Simulated scan of single mutants.
Amino acid sequence: MNYRHAFHAGNFGDVLKHVVLLDLVAALHRKAAPLHLLDSHAGIGLYDLASAEAQRGGEYRLGVGAVLSDPAARRILPDYLAALRALNPELDDTGAGLRRYPGSPWLLQRSLRTEDRLTLCELHPEDVQTLKHNLGRDPRVSIHHRDGFEALRALTPPMPRRGLALIDPAFEDENEFATLTRTVQAMHRRWATGLLAIWYPIKDQRETDRWKRELAAPIAAATIAVELTVRPARESRQMNGSGLIIVNPPWQFDDALRPRLDFLKTRLAREAGAGARIETLVKAA
């Protein structure tokens, strides 16, 4: 419970996560039926890039900053850029004017329609209070001070049943991958139609691939993994990339995402051997 995302806001992992998340929500909004969105490890929802925490590592400069420095971002990532501009009215085409970075709760709240619902969970006692302050009073949003894994088991299937769960733990516990695997598999048994988006760091690619196979083995629905590495993923002592496992991805989702993923690889690569891929873990029935 020591993890504070303020040190890492806007880094390459955030960029991938948020680009994919916005595409998923846009696909769900193609139908008028109400949605229930869940974020299991919400953080504070909104980040000040001028803060001491963000400035200490400056990770956003090689993440969102690198994306915004390319004029093509406006064409390739229109939803992502629209969200950043909504939060930073002075943002220009060079990336100047970026002052605040949205967390996934802010992006999800912004996407809500009248009948949609959003449930946010955060365990850190200070962060949950900041989250409530940052998102304001919105009758469509419920904020819980509770463990995200416990909440996912207790709150699914949600009402309405159509929806998405974003699962983005801190991975500060050595057993976190095992806990995540058990939680996702249990959720899928109870909520077979739910769209699940599970973010994960990539250190050693072989270990990551083994874990993905283990998680996906009992899943009885189409499942893909979207991955971006900024350097070859051979050094297990550092974060070399990140990915999202997506259970029940929208129809033709991978085709729509592929050009965005290729663009992100070009902008976010730090060494030769950076990569981007969309991998099928479970084929559609």
Results as ranks from 00 to 15, higher is better:
residue 187 M to N: 04
residue 189 R to K: 13
residue 214 E to I: 13
residue 165 A to P: 03
residue 171 F to E: 07
residue 220 A to T: 06
residue 230 V to L: 12
residue 185 Q to M: 11
residue 209 D to A: 10
residue 163 G to K: 04
residue 210 R to E: 08
residue 216 A to H: 01
residue 190 R to A: 12
residue 168 D to A: 06
residue 230 V to F: 09
residue 182 R to K: 05
residue 189 R to N: 05
residue 216 A to V: 02
residue 164 L to K: 11
residue 239 M to H: 08
residue 197 A to K: 07
residue 205 Q to G: 06
residue 164 L to V: 14
residue 211 W to S: 06
residue 234 R to H: 12
residue 206 R to S: 09
residue 227 E to N: 12
residue 190 R to H: 12
residue 200 Y to P: 09
residue 184 V to R: 03
residue 196 L to I: 15
residue 188 H to K: 02
residue 231 R to K: 13
residue 189 R to E: 11
residue 151 A to P: 09
residue 187 M to I: 15
residue 207 E to H: 08
residue 176 E to C: 01
residue 240 N to V: 01
residue 177 F to T: 14
residue 232 P to E: 15
residue 182 R to G: 05
residue 201 P to Q: 04
residue 212 K to G: 00
residue 173 D to E: 14
residue 177 F to G: 07
residue 158 P to M: 05
residue 197 A to R: 04
residue 194 G to N: 03
residue 170 A to C: 13
residue 153 R to G: 13
residue 165 A to K: 03
residue 172 E to R: 13
residue 170 A to T: 13
residue 234 R to S: 11
residue 232 P to G: 15
residue 185 Q to A: 13
residue 213 R to P: 00
residue 227 E to M: 07
residue 183 T to W: 05
residue 154 A to W: 06
residue 162 R to L: 11
residue 195 L to D: 02
residue 234 R to N: 12
residue 205 Q to C: 05
residue 214 E to Q: 15
residue 170 A to G: 15
residue 236 S to N: 06
residue 210 R to I: 03
residue 189 R to C: 02
residue 183 T to D: 07
residue 214 E to R: 15
residue 150 E to C: 01
residue 162 R to W: 14
residue 178 A to T: 15
residue 208 T to H: 08
residue 184 V to A: 11
residue 156 T to K: 01
residue 240 N to W: 00
residue 151 A to H: 12
residue 157 P to D: 01
residue 214 E to P: 07
residue 168 D to W: 05
residue 177 F to V: 14
residue 206 R to L: 07
residue 211 W to N: 10
residue 199 W to I: 00
residue 171 F to T: 08
residue 199 W to C: 00
residue 163 G to E: 05
residue 194 G to A: 14
residue 205 Q to K: 12
residue 168 D to H: 06
residue 160 P to S: 09
residue 169 P to T: 09
residue 233 A to M: 07
residue 194 G to F: 01
residue 231 R to E: 14
residue 167 I to K: 03
